[in-house]
C-alpha cells in the first residue's frame, strides 16, 4: 500500500502555489494536512502526478488566521482542526458566542487527536466528504469559500454551489481554497449538533447540525443541516419550515425530526442502508435541536 510516483513541489508563496497549479492543471493536487489525500494515495485511489505542498508557505494571515470582521468569521484554509479545538473561549471576542462553542465542540468530532494535529479546515472543506463535520457546518450555516487562482480573479463561492457531490467541489484544478467565511451567530442563536458513528473518531453515519434564532421565546430563523444522507451535506428545508414561527419544545423538535426524515433521500452503503440513514436523520435532528450544548464524542 504505497503511493504511485509523483513529483513534489513545496512553494514558499501563494503566488508560486497558484503558478504551479496553473502549470500542472488536473495532474496536480494540493497537499495540506494529508489526512485524506495520503490515505487515498496509499491505496492508489488518488494518483496525482504532481503534489503541491502548501505546508511550507510562509505564514499568511488569510491562510492561517481566524478572525472576525463585521459579522463575518474568517477561517484560513490551513488552520488545523486542533487549533479550532483549542481555540480559546472568547477567542473571537464579543463575537465568540454560539459560533465559538460550535467550532470548539465540532473540532473534537473530527477523527482523532493525531488526525487533528495535521488535518486542516480547508482540506476538509476541499475534500468534501458528505459526512465531514466542517462540511456540514459550512453547508448549514451558509459559508462562503474564498478561492484564488493565477488565471482568474478571486472568487467567492457559496457553500451550496461549492459542494457538488461526494469528494467533488466546484474548485477548478488550478484553484486554491484560501479561506472560509461564516456568519457570526449572535447571542440569540442556539446551536446544536448530534452525530452517530460506529466507533470513536469515525466519520458520521449521519450527523445533524442545527441553529435556531429565538426571539421572545419563539423561533424566528432556523438552519438545519445533515451529513451522511446525500452526496453532499444538505440543508433540510422542511425541517426548518417546521421550526420557524414555533415555540421551541420537544414536541416541535419531534415534528422537525419527522420532517427531516421525510425530506432526505439517502443511498445506502455498508455502514447504513438508505432507510436506516433516513430514520437516523430524524433522530439526529431532534437530538441536535434538544441539545443543551455541543456533546463530546466519548
Amino acid at each position: 500500500m504505497k503511493p504511485a510516483q509523483f513529483s513534489y513541489i513545496a512553494p514558499e508563496t501563494v503566488e508560486e502555489v497558484l503558478a504551479a497549479l496553473a502549470e500542472h492543471g488536473d495532474e496536480a493536487k494540493v497537499l495540506a494536512g494529508g489526512q485524506s489525500l495520503v490515505p487515498m494515495m496509499n491505496f492508489r485511489l488518488a494518483r496525482p502526478s504532481v503534489i503541491v505542498d502548501i505546508g511550507r508557505l510562509a505564514a499568511d494571515e488569510s491562510l492561517d488566521g481566524i478572525s472576525v470582521d463585521e459579522g463575518t468569521l474568517r477561517i484560513g484554509a490551513r488552520v488545523r482542526h486542533r487549533q479550532l479545538e483549542h481555540f480559546p473561549a472568547n477567542g473571537l471576542g464579543p463575537a465568540d458566542g454560539p459560533l465559538g462553542s460550535l467550532l470548539r465542540g465540532l473540532a473534537r468530532w473530527v477523527g482523532h487527536l493525531p488526525i487533528r494535529v495535521r488535518g486542516t479546515f480547508g482540506g476538509s472543506i476541499a475534500h468534501a466528504d458528505p459526512a465531514a463535520e466542517w462540511c456540514i457546518m459550512a453547508q448549514t450555516l451558509g459559508a462562503e469559500m474564498v478561492v484564488r487562482s493565477s488565471t482568474r480573479p478571486m472568487r467567492i463561492v457559496a457553500a451550496e454551489d461549492f459542494f457538488e457531490t461526494v469528494f467533488t467541489t466546484s474548485l477548478e484544478p488550478e484553484e486554491l481554497l484560501t479561506e472560509v467565511r461564516l456568519p457570526v451567530l449572535g447571542p440569540d442563536w442556539r446551536v446544536g449538533f448530534c452525530e452517530f458513528a460506529r466507533r470513536a473518531g469515525d466519520f458520521a453515519v449521519v450527523a445533524a447540525l442545527t441553529a435556531l434564532r429565538i426571539e421572545d421565546g419563539s423561533i424566528v430563523e432556523a438552519r438545519v443541516g445533515a451529513g451522511g444522507v446525500a452526496g453532499t451535506p444538505v440543508r433540510l428545508r422542511a425541517a426548518e419550515a417546521a421550526l420557524v414561527g414555533a415555540i421551541p419544545t420537544p414536541a416541535v423538535f419531534h415534528e422537525a425530526g419527522l420532517a427531516a426524515t421525510g425530506e432526505v433521500d439517502p443511498s445506502g452503503d455498508i455502514h447504513g442502508s438508505a432507510g436506516y440513514r433516513r430514520d437516523l436523520t430524524g433522530v439526529m435532528v431532534r437530538r441536535a435541536l434538544g441539545a443543551e450544548s455541543i456533546p463530546t464524542p466519548v
Binding site: 466507533r199 470513536a200 464524542p297 466519548v298
Partner: peptide, 10 residues
C-alpha cells in the same frame, strides 16, 4: 474504516 476493530472508547 470499513472493517471496524474497536478502540479504547468502545
Amino acid at each position: 474504516m470499513d472493517f471496524l476493530p474497536p478502540t479504547a472508547a468502545e
